[in-house]
Amino acid sequence: MAFGADELRVLRRALAVALHPMPLPDEDVQDCLRLAGAVDDAVGEAGRLRAFLLADLARYRAALPGSVTGYLELLQDALAAGYDPRADDLAALRALRGRPVAALLLERCQVLAERSVRARLAGRGAALTAPGPRSRLLALPGGRAAAEPQRPAGPAAPSRPPAPGDRPMPKPSEVFPPRRRPVPPPEEQRAAG
Rank of each mutant, 00 (worst) to 15 (best):
R120I: 03
M169P: 07
A139K: 15
P152V: 06
A63S: 12
R34L: 13
D40L: 14
C109H: 01
P172E: 06
L140F: 12
P158G: 04
L93R: 00
D88Y: 00
R120N: 09
P172N: 09
G143Y: 11
A78C: 04
D41R: 14
P100M: 05
R13K: 07
A156R: 13
L53I: 01
A153L: 09
A46K: 10
S67K: 11
P85K: 01
G165K: 06
E73C: 12
E73I: 04
P65I: 01
P182A: 02
L104K: 07
G98Y: 04
D40W: 02
P141G: 12
S173T: 13
A113M: 05
G154F: 03
R34C: 09
E27R: 15
Q110Y: 05
C109D: 01
R160M: 06
P177R: 12
S116T: 12
V175D: 05
P158V: 02
A42F: 04
K171W: 10
A145Y: 10
G82S: 06
R97S: 04
L49D: 10
D88C: 00
P178I: 07
R12Q: 11
E174C: 07
P133Y: 06
D31N: 15
T69H: 13
R151V: 05
R59A: 04
L72M: 05
D166T: 10
L90N: 00
A157F: 07
V39N: 05
A163Y: 10
A16F: 04
E187P: 02
T69C: 05
A87S: 06
R48G: 03
L75Y: 05
R48M: 09
E114N: 13
R120M: 13
R144S: 15
R160V: 11
V175F: 04
P185G: 15
R167K: 08
L15P: 02
A58V: 03
G82F: 00
R115H: 12
A146V: 08
V111L: 07
M169H: 11
R118L: 14
A81I: 00
L19A: 14
A191T: 08
Q189M: 11
Q150W: 10
R34A: 13
A16P: 00
A62W: 05
G4C: 13
R108I: 02
A122F: 14
D56S: 11
R59L: 03
E27A: 15
P152I: 06
L53T: 10
S116H: 15
A63G: 07
A18Q: 08
G70R: 14
R59M: 01
A145S: 14
D84S: 14
A156C: 06
P164N: 06
M22Y: 08
P149H: 13
